[in-house]
């Protein structure tokens, strides 16, 4: 059950980091939103599509978490606590990474890309603008996939749940992931010794944006006009 040794090795001349490699392999494919073509466009339809997509993404992301080196060694209760705190940050970071190639659009799924007009229609303009602020930050930095996968694992390990039983084990997980990011940057971006720190410094905005998103979807839930699946509801209630 020991955490994997942090080490660097060389594959085909490219220096890689073991933890980063594991996270790259574990990274799930995007899923499709599949909005119902028989239903006319409306705010309710957009929100229903997004909530359904989020529910399915969550299942995928729980499967992903189990592949983070060291995560399965945590107690089941601590695994739950981290996911209950960090799930929305993970969902948002995935949307952000998918959106890096586009201008002012959010790729919720390959078949569900929201521009300003669609955001307005769905009542998500403020939230989507906040997410676009993150996209802009990572675009400026030129966020790489390797950095994205480690940052996402760090966001989960660092989700600051109040219910952690074994905080030393969670700290060890954070240290392994943080070390992996530092090693990656030392090898791949020696010209910018502060790059790992710069990436970590984007996490407060991610936390803040995720909190806004949770708040927004909690009020949508209270309205009761948008159907939501059980896992999504369960995690909204955990907040």
């Amino acid at each position: 059950n020991a955490l994997p040794q942090k080490k660097t090795f060389s594959v085909g001349g490219v220096v890689e980091n073991k933890v980063v490699s594991l996270l790259l392999v574990a990274e799930p494919e995007g899923i499709f939103a599949m909005p119902d073509p028989t239903v006319p466009e409306s705010d309710i339809k957009a929100l229903t599509t997004l909530c359904d997509l989020a529910d399915r993404e969550l299942v995928v992301n729980i499967g992903w978490a189990k592949h983070i080196p060291g995560f399965p060694s945590l107690s089941l209760a601590d695994q739950m606590s981290l996911l209950q705190s960090g799930w929305m940050e993970i969902l948002i970071l995935r949307v952000v990474f998918r959106s890096l190639a586009l201008e002012d659009k959010l790729v919720y799924a390959e078949d569900y890309i929201m521009d300003e007009e669609q955001s307005k229609l769905a009542g998500l303009l403020d939230l989507n603008n906040a997410i676009l602020q993150l996209v802009k930050k990572y675009k400026t930095m030129g966020l790489e996939k390797e950095e994205f996968v480690v940052l996402k694992a760090i966001a989960l390990a660092n989700s600051d749940s109040m219910q952690i039983e074994d905080s030393e084990a969670v700290q060890r997980l954070q240290d392994v992931l943080h070390g992996a990011l530092q090693d990656y940057e030392a090898t791949n971006h020696p010209e910018d010794p502060r790059r790992a720190g710069k990436l970590i410094m984007t996490l407060p905005l991610l936390r803040q944006t995720a909190a806004r998103a949770v708040q927004h979807f909690c009020s949508i839930k209270q309205d009761g006009r948008v159907p939501m699946h059980k896992l999504f509801l369960e995690l909204l209630e955990a907040k």
Partner: peptide, 20 residues
């Protein structure tokens, strides 16, 4: 934790992580 049945099930149904 009782309230979080689905998350619990999804985590528990895990086989151990695949040997990558």
């Amino acid at each position: 934790k009782e309230k979080h049945k689905i998350l619990h099930q999804l985590l528990q149904n895990s086989t151990s992580p695949v040997d990558l």
